[in-house]
Design a protein around this nucleic acid. Structure first.
Lengths: 354, 354
DNA sequence: CTGAAAGCGCTTACAG
DNA sequence: CTGAAAGCGCTTACAG
């Protein structure tokens, strides 16, 4: 590097990111003014403002959020607590939320609330960053009402895929009970009598509601509901599904001779599909709440009750930002529409598949 | 509220989160000491330390990260830039990275780098939060070498699923060219001669490499490689795949009469599967780089070259934290092993499927 | 072993 | 219209 010489400008450019003070120095003004020009808006001479903007551009200045947040009290960031990143449903939610946040200049900090981590442990990292609000999609992770209620008293919280209409925070979800009922009625209308409901586990409240809808529809048709749980671990789902289906496909067994399977949640749909293929149960009708990418390529193909997941994510973000912007109306509870997509369950099955 | 009366303790508890000063007041000591007890470690009397810890517990104190970061210069958070949250591959990466970060007390802030957002626009929100390091998995999103190189000079960056061995940052990925070659050789060994390679688009460098491996294997067998692109939009993939397969399955067409399809990337595998089902192409052999949950339920079933995605994510996090902790070795480039899982491509197809 | 003080980079009343 | 100053909550030399 050449020596700049004795007549070089006073302060050499500092290392690292440029600060407001650097920009002020370069523009020959004060930090206050730079802040006003860059974020505050009006009240500055055009000429000065232009000089500041040029200096900022030349120095590659961008605001230090920590400092801003420390000063303002709230971060321009929202937190997202998800049950599981590997399930596309949740990925589609974050994608929408991230998009909405990005458009508003907000950052997104995430945390995983599944796999035995407590709600509190999951959320603390978000709170200690002073996020401006929270999107919580912990789906089947249990009933965090108590803790969330406390939280919602202090900052905006929107629950996605919520099991129930919370009185503390906005919720966006589907009509779970109606979903279970609708799919069951569809199968019954096609002539099925022995329909097996399969969920992840009894702790998954949304799944319980879907099951309730299934049971109601079965009982109204004078049929005996039969349901089973496959657990929450993808690694075990397929094995368990194989055992389960082998048992219930057997016409001789109690609760056996089923002709249709109703999957209550995306988490187990995959395992059921794999198990059917492995057992060669091509005549079983197969329906599920939640769609699955590629489900039309399954064998047997999958009839689904599709929800507008992107709509849910986008709406959740909208509600959250409205709250952040000061909306103080009582909590709202929205349900996105469901759409039945008939793929495999249309064909009437033989009386007793084997 | 009852008046606390004249002899009440001096300062009423403040609203909002408790600060270090609140804790200090409650414990009858200074902020310095509280900080030392809670984070600094040694150098404080057991008795005082205990008093501080109790006060902190009672006030529900937890550190304000903004303030800490502002002071320290680096946030205890890492950034993750992902191409697409809705593709399970990326979800599995974040899940691992988040887990590793959580274990070390780090937060995770995310940003989406796909869908026309520039690399810079995607990463800026992370930088303005002073993240301590970056995991970049922008996969097919183009060749960000220039920008990333600049970035990597200033903070630790690990690239996941990187197209090439960067000289600026650590990378974790697979042997892309080898993957294309291996799968192609598998198909050729099963007697296939007309194998169609399908990728997302020419800008996806990793896919280009896989294609190169495919082409090399074809040429070495004296065969003419034929490849096609389906684009990056899930919404269009299936439609395009239908057109594509109809064309190439036709024995009369140029480049037609294919007996096997090789999918170069997860993004298009689903669409290909759907198209095959829709066209009833059950005799086509189907193989893909990347596994797909539920692929064993496809019809035809899918032979895959599975990569240890969890391993990739975990390893990327490990490398990143090593760098954050001061590791200054030259960049390392690691490849995770691949595993061929033969499902559908084993059966020899008829000469000319229709 | 403990505390007073400075300072991280910003924003925002408050003067002028 | 513009700037000096205070202060957000922490951490960290520096004294004592």
């Amino acid at each position: 590097m050449a020596d700049p010489g004795p007549s070089a400008p006073p302060a050499p450019p500092r290392a690292g990111r440029a600060t407001l003070v650097d920009v002020a120095a370069a523009a020959g003004t004060s930090a206050s003014t730079v802040s006003r020009v860059l974020h505050g808006g009006a009240g500055v001479t055009d000429e000065l403002a232009e000089r500041v903007r040029r200096a900022a551009r030349e120095l590659g200045y961008s605001v230090n959020r920590q400092a801003r947040t420390l000063r303002r009290g709230k971060d321009t960031a929202i937190g997202v607590a998800l049950e599981d990143f590997t399930i596309p449903f949740f990925g589609r939610i974050v994608a929408q939320v991230e998009q909405a946040a990005h458009e508003r200049g907000y950052g997104v900090v995430i945390t995983c609330a599944g796999s035995g981590r407590s709600e509190e442990e999951a959320v603390e990292p978000l709170l200690s960053r002073s996020v401006a609000g929270l999107v919580v999609a912990t789906g089947t992770a249990g009933a965090p009402e108590g803790y969330l209620a406390e939280l919602a008293a202090e900052l905006p919280v929107v629950q996605v895929d919520a099991p129930s209409a919370s009185s503390h925070s906005d919720t966006v979800g589907i009509d779970n009970e109606g979903a279970g009922r609708l799919l069951t009625e569809h199968l019954l209308a096609r002539g099925h009598r022995r329909v097996l409901f399969v969920g992840s586990g009894p702790a998954a409240t949304t799944v319980q509601l879907r099951r309730r809808g299934y049971e109601a529809a079965m009982r109204e048709a004078g049929l005996e509901p039969v349901s089973a749980w496959l657990g929450y671990l993808p690694s075990e789902t397929t094995e368990r599904a194989v055992d389960l289906l082998r048992e219930h496909a057997d016409p001789a067994a109690p609760g056996g001779g089923i002709t249709a399977v109703l999957s209550g949640v995306a988490r187990v749909t995959m395992g059921l599909a794999s198990a059917m293929t492995r057992l060669g149960l091509r005549d079983l009708a197969f329906a599920a709440v939640d769609d699955l990418a590629g489900a039309d390529a399954f064998n047997p193909p999958l009839t689904v009750l599709e929800q507008d997941v992107e709509g849910m994510g986008a709406r959740a973000a909208e509600l959250l930002f409205a709250r952040i912007d000061g909306d103080r109306r009582p909590p709202v509870h929205e349900q996105v529409p469901l759409q039945l997509i008939v793929r495999g369950s249309g064909e009437l099955p033989p009386r007793a598949p084997r």
